[in-house]
């Protein structure tokens, strides 16, 4: 066991505990976007940074392991400034409208993305995919660049709305070795032009995608959505507060995956799996995630 101090309180945690987990035992919640309980920490979004005495820079609470004698501050001016700035940088460059969890953080930190300037017009389809490392158009600074771009719809099961993508790496990790191991997507390009991409930006239907939808399952900002959800949102009929969530077991093979059925108006509108289910670890296959269409919505 390791003893450390967080915000003036002593806490004892098992070896290997992250600072985020240690803080949670004291009831201190840490904002995070790129961390997921069923994936290795990517430490990319930096919303979770905290101050560790003796460290020159702030450290990501999601990935940094607790060490004996650490003195940690989660609410210092430095921490608040960096968190606020990360949210302003994201808010000014990405469409966070479907990232509900961000709104209270923004409010409590006083984040104001608008001070980065008016948003630049969205890119045309394919424009961001064509950006090449080391080259970009000079800016006059009059507008703030964004990643906004048209939605990619190339299959019947889910859509990719990369204007909402914060590049948290979760979808790549879930598609890759940490879960599905299909490796259909990766981060391509560099810097602000980095994006999630198949090889040569090919449509998903020409890629290695097997439509397990584990990328959707881990996406924190709604950049990846099942078609059902996307269509309901387009119609303005997506109402999470009216949805029930029921855990049950997948009706297909004998592995016994827990499905969480999201039901709105007696219709299954989305299927997820709890990350703490021992069988799934939160991940599903195409049948579990999309194979429930045979349950006809009432009245159809």
């Amino acid at each position: 066991m390791i003893e450390l101090e967080i915000d003036g309180q002593k806490v004892t945690v098992p070896e290997g505990t992250t600072l985020m987990e240690a803080a949670a035992t004291l009831g201190i919640s840490t904002p995070t976007l790129c961390w997921a309980p069923n994936l290795d920490p990517a430490t990319a979004c930096r919303v979770c940074v905290v101050e560790v005495e003796g460290s020159r820079v702030l450290v990501p609470a999601c990935g940094r392991k607790a060490e004996a004698g650490m003195v940690v501050r989660t609410n210092s001016d430095r921490v608040r400034t960096s968190r606020k700035m990360v949210l302003e940088l994201l808010g000014s460059s990405v469409d966070l409208s479907a990232a509900e969890q961000v709104k209270p953080w923004m409010a409590s930190l006083g984040a104001d993305p608008s001070r980065m300037g008016p948003a630049a017009p969205p890119s045309a389809a394919g424009e961001r995919d064509a950006a090449r490392a080391g080259h970009h158009h000079a800016t006059d600074g009059a507008t703030a660049a964004t990643v906004c771009q048209p939605i990619k719809v190339d299959n019947e099961l889910y859509v990719r709305d990369y204007g909402k993508c914060i590049l948290c790496y979760k979808c790549v990790d879930a598609c890759g070795e940490q879960a599905q191991a299909s490796f259909a997507i990766a981060v391509a390009g560099r810097g602000f032009d980095a994006r999630i991409s198949t090889e040569l930006d090919k449509p998903l239907t020409d890629s290695a995608c097997v439509y397990c939808g584990n990328c959707i399952g881990v996406c924190p900002t709604g950049a990846l959505q099942p078609v059902t959800e996307h269509e309901l949102r387009q119609e303005g009929a997506w109402e999470p507060e009216r949805q029930t969530q029921t855990d049950t077991i997948c009706p297909y093979c004998g592995v016994g995956c827990t499905l969480t059925l999201h039901v709105q108006d007696d219709r299954i509108v989305k299927v997820t799996s709890p990350h703490d289910a021992s069988v799934t670890g939160g991940h599903l296959c195409i049948k579990g995630r999309f194979g429930t269409r045979f349950v006809a919505p009432r009245g159809s």
Partner: peptide
């Protein structure tokens, strides 16, 4: 019987 409704791109 079940999966036929899936509309799977694969």
């Amino acid at each position: 019987v079940q999966s036929g409704h899936l509309g799977a791109p694969l």
